[in-house]
């Protein structure tokens, strides 16, 4: 084999190995939760599940508190998405379109807040939310998830609006639009897929977040918070099914926004 061919073979071998490392555990958790409930205690486990059944999954979905937690998670996610888009999209637009004094500092602050440990925020916010009547509510958790998702929303929307040439807006203004009209008729439609990606990204972040959600709720847990507090109480098949239910929506969303992932995170360092 030629040197080049050997190199290529090694490259694909490495890529394949990494792929297996990342995919096999996902396969196992699916295998573990597609079967009758008591199959989780089988040993040795068959690598290919023998008895296909939605028994375990349906056990989880009907477990006490799960439907409510599911609803809570969706509500929290929607609040986080809505607020971070309403606040973040204009900010992203400003960063993409304007040059102004203090721009770099502002960008840096936004970046810094994103890397701020959420553990530190949750505990004082829990105390504050008690007095604001936001403790143990969807808006309370949603707002904290907004704070976590907002910086990334700003970054992604900025990247999206960078991708819409200014010329297009200017052309629209010469053709009879106001500046705001040009934004809504030209930039916004072109930016919509990117904004949707930012929204999905925020939703996935919220859907997955467990620390703040556990700290800020007592009865009205989100799905991950419920799973976390039940780790030591509920049977193993509950956790396995929970993991699958948590993973599936995120995997689907990530599939839709995969094109934006690199653009969004690549932008981070510019």
């Amino acid at each position: 084999m030629s040197r080049h061919g050997l190199r290529l073979a090694l490259l694909y071998a490495a890529a394949l190995l990494i792929t297996l490392f990342l995919l096999i555990p996902v396969y196992f958790i699916f295998a573990a939760s597609i079967g009758p409930q008591n199959s989780v205690y089988d040993f040795p486990k068959p690598l290919v599940p023998q008895n296909l059944s939605f028994d375990t999954l349906s056990f989880f979905l009907h477990y006490q508190g799960v439907p409510e937690a599911f609803k809570m998670s969706v509500e929290v996610g929607i609040i986080a998405v809505a607020v971070s888009l309403i606040l973040g999209a204009p900010a992203g637009y400003a960063i993409a379109r304007y040059t102004f004094p203090g721009k770099n500092v502002l960008q840096l602050i936004v970046l810094a807040t994103r890397s701020f440990p959420v553990i530190i925020l949750s505990i004082p916010l829990a105390v504050t939310f008690l007095s604001w009547n936001l403790y143990d509510t969807a808006p309370g958790v949603g707002l904290v998830h907004t704070a976590m998702g907002l910086p990334v929303t700003i970054l992604i929307t900025a990247a999206v609006f960078y991708g819409v040439p200014v010329d297009l807006e200017e052309a629209a203004t010469t053709l009879g639009c106001t500046r705001i009209g040009a934004f809504f008729r030209i930039s916004l439609p072109m930016a919509l897929p990117g904004l949707a990606a930012a929204a999905l990204f925020t939703f996935v972040g919220s859907w997955n977040e467990v620390f703040a959600a556990s700290i800020l709720t007592l009865q009205n847990h989100t799905l991950p918070a419920l799973v976390l507090t039940s780790l030591n109480i509920a049977p193993l098949q509950f956790s396995f099914a929970a993991a699958v239910i948590l993973i599936v929506p995120s995997m689907v969303f990530i599939f839709f926004i995969r094109r934006y992932l690199v653009a969004g995170w690549g932008q981070v360092t510019k």
Binding site: I18, T19, L22, L23, P25, V26, F28, I29, A32, V204, W207, N208, E209, V210, P224, V227, L228, L236, S239, F240, A242, A243, L246, I247, S250, M251, F253, I254, F255, R258, L261, V262
Partner: peptide
Amino acid sequence: LYVWTIPLAISDLAAGIVWLS
């Protein structure tokens, strides 16, 4: 690229459970 970003979608909690299995 898609397969390698799948774990990005998986929460730390779910990841823990995955490896528990």
